[in-house]
Design a protein around this nucleic acid. Structure first.
Lengths: 197, 197
DNA sequence: ACAGAGAACGAACGTTCGTGCTCTTATCGG
DNA sequence: CCGATAAGAGCACGAACGTTCGTTCTCTGT
């Protein structure tokens, strides 16, 4: 504990925002130090390599994501309300993440596509966890009798993620004001095709 | 013209592959020169700045995309065959683009999300053109009477692009062998919901 | 009061970055 | 076959990169 942890938290905080803008590779220790009024070496000492920093940034972002998106959602009633909360909060997370940059995970996903290494491995693990979370929520909806039992929960998760990616693209890159409405519409169609008849 | 154009083409060729791997920012003149057995300065002379190189890389990739995806697709019959050809060839383009890296445009989209400048502007323009192309193909399907006239063609384009993004994510990052099948399934659902009853 | 740990500093390292020069070699029209 | 012109090499630059080092504070526990 103590002061060091506060600094570390502040570093990771800024890193998340910065990495969402310029990527995990574009994230630079020098710039980070300047913005936080630290020396490069002092900042560097908190992590012993840039790679370690990148991984910890991913972990910190995931922790925040769970707090802001997953936890509140699982407090909603099983079935449709819960999955809708998941979706709505994910949208809000992507929109905020404040200022520029969009969602760190989406940015990192494209960046680490084909660059093997521990950082990529960590991201894949986190994404797998998130997709599994969606699938689980869907499955509980099935056992509750509101979703069709003949559907593959993982495919549902995949499709939902596609909607989210489409939203990110339309809103962040294309700056399309209809992005939100379209994401909601696509989500609605996905839901209604998953509902038990 | 002469030899210079051959070199330029070779540079852009390698640049497209490299940029798909490491991004347009990660694309480096030094590495490019080494791989192509050129001097940094000799290579640099072809473009007068890195930014100009990045833009020309985007343009070159777009040109190739049109040749490999759009042109063959518009030779297909109007309506469903044409839009299916568009989709299938896009999938093939994303898979090949040979070796690692995936689709340059998807990578660039995430990278340039919130980084203003001429490169981003160029990418947005190209993406807008591509989305418009999808919408136009959809519209001709409407006038042919095979697609529902009450649907928004641009929304259809948006939804189709979402499917593509989902495929890219599942296949490139997650290395999910079911990515192709799921993309086809999602495409099938999108199509059947767009067909006239 | 003193020892030790933790946190941050400034300076420097070897590399690589993009970008300029100048100079030499190839190419091609008259 | 020659001379203009295009293409590329060679070299150097300032800046930024990640990383290491030795040092200096400021706490905390004994």
């Amino acid at each position: 504990m103590g002061k060091g942890d506060d600094t570390r938290t502040a570093i990771l905080d800024r890193s998340i925002g910065l990495a969402a803008e310029v990527g995990l590779e574009g994230l630079t220790i020098g710039r980070l130090a300047t913005e936080l009024h630290l020396s490069k070496s002092g900042l560097f000492a908190h992590f012993r390599s840039k790679e370690a920093l990148q991984i910890q940034v991913l972990d910190a972002a995931a922790e925040r994501f769970v707090d802001e998106v997953v936890k509140p959602a699982v407090r909603e009633p099983r079935g449709e309300p819960r999955i809708r909360a998941l979706f709505d909060r994910w949208l809000a997370w992507t929109k905020s993440n404040s200022g520029p940059g969009g969602c760190l995970f989406v940015a990192a996903a494209a960046e680490l596509d084909d660059r093997p290494g521990p950082v990529r491995d960590r991201l894949v693990a986190l994404q797998k966890g998130w997709l599994e979370m969606i699938a689980i929520v869907f499955r509980t909806g099935v056992t509750e009798g509101v979703f069709r039992p003949d559907l593959d929960p993982e495919e549902f998760a995949h499709d939902l993620y596609s909607v989210m990616l489409g939203f990110h693209h339309a809103s962040r890159l294309m700056r399309d004001p209809r992005a939100g409405a379209r994401a909601q519409a696509a989500f609605g169609r996905l839901l209604s095709s998953a509902r038990r008849t």
